[in-house]
Amino acid sequence: MNSIFSVHTARFISLIILQVLVLNHINFLGFINPYIYIIFIALYPIKNNRITLILLSFFLGLIIDMFQDTGGIHAGACVFIAYARPLFLKFSFGTMYEHQIIKFNTVEFGSKLTYFTLLTVTHHFILFLLEVFNVSKIIFILEKTLYSSIFTILLSVLITIIFSRKVK
């Protein structure tokens, strides 16, 4: 229990530092940034209390917002995916989720990719919707969502592969 707690605390802090100091300054093609801090929400233990996850996601988003001067857009998007996470889990892992036996290290690559994609696209769409805050620019929002999502999904899959421990 204690080691799980410390792993997630370390992940929380290091993802914020990575996001704020490095990834927010990539600005690929002018405006495309990956937001990989959401893998904290993706990899949060499934058996734990949902309320804790929603609260933690809110603070995670709020800290990113503080550094980026963006009000509450990250907090809003994070809270949304934290709340909707069981839905995505059920969709991508099916019966494995219902039996509560998912280990992110050992699941199939395909279903893991589906799960990350769903989570990322939803997060980015809400993020950019709140950022632009103008429904008449929906094409611009979708464009940003598409490009940034590709970037985020690639990076987060890479990071989870690199940092996964083989437990077999």
């Binding site: 988003g61 009000g71 509450g72 809270v79 709340y83």
Partner: peptide, 17 residues
């Protein structure tokens, strides 16, 4: 809880605008 926190973030977003 979700609705509550989402409203807070929405309010913060509107305030920055």
């Amino acid at each position: 809880l979700f609705i509550f926190l989402f409203c807070i973030s929405l309010a913060l977003t509107i305030l920055t605008h």
